[in-house]
Design a protein around this nucleic acid. Sequence first.
DNA 1: TTGTGTTTTATTGCCTCC
DNA 2: GGAGGCAATAAAACACAA
Length: 291
Amino acid sequence: MAGGRVYPSNNDTTDGVPNNLSVLLQNQRLHPLFIPGSSPSPSFLGTRSMVSFEDSLKTNRPKRSIFKMFDEQENGYDEYLEECFHQPEKKRRLTVDQIQFLEKSFEVDNKLEPERKIQLAKDLGLQPRQVAIWFQNRRARWKTKQLEKDYDTLLAMYNSLKADYDDLLKEKDKLKEEVLQLTDKLQTKENERRNSEFSDVKPLLLQEPSQKPIVVSMAACKQEDIDSDNIPQYYSDEFHSSLLEAADSSYPFEPDQSDLSQDEEDSLHPPASLSNFGFPVEDHPFWSWTY
DNA sequence: TTGTGTTTTATTGCCTCC
DNA sequence: GGAGGCAATAAAACACAA
């Protein structure tokens, strides 16, 4: 009851009214309107409906909870009430019929205009304030439910996305593995081809590796050309193994670029002259495959 | 029966709107 | 400034396991 707000409290129903009500009426301590004039549908007036007598107990007093009223009143009045009612009023729940009626009304519109509130109160044998409170609490429950629904929806969407993501990761790993296997095969084949070439023909590299390598057959060369002193230094076991190392590196497989800086990326994409085992791509159809 | 958790009814204080 | 809405909360009623 903030800011001096005065709420009319409950004073409804014929049931649950103490037998000594007539005494109160006789003593004119109850407002005559306490007894509902237009009797609502009996089914709404169950024995468990909320009962309050505050409005009837006073005419010009602030309308508060009967318990609080007890606190506020002078002893004589308290004693009088005690005498009349013997025990404090108990909070009663609405009947099933009342709740069903209110639920239907709530479905139509969850906001309550004054006219509708009064009509509902009349129909249900409740105080308009009770109807307003019920709608307020019902809106709060609806909001909570709605939040739970939204949460469930978002959770389902998240789970679905996560499942998709996990599937994609698996597929990526599978493809990576496939690429590795194919690369191994390719490497093996290439090594075999080179070995067979070296066993039949002793090649000579007559130029620097930056230039086109020239493989010359033994028959086409003079003896002095194949003297050990004339074999270029880069055509040694060391050079050969460095070529193989280059072939073993991860290139040409695309690394996970999202994790790489530009420098790292550059290092994984050597210049054309150094890729494909040091041979220019365009001169070797086999190596010119793109991955 | 009793302790405990949940639901429902009602109050309070603050805020917004007219 | 009053009416009404909402969030937070109290308290009674209810459900249920131990």
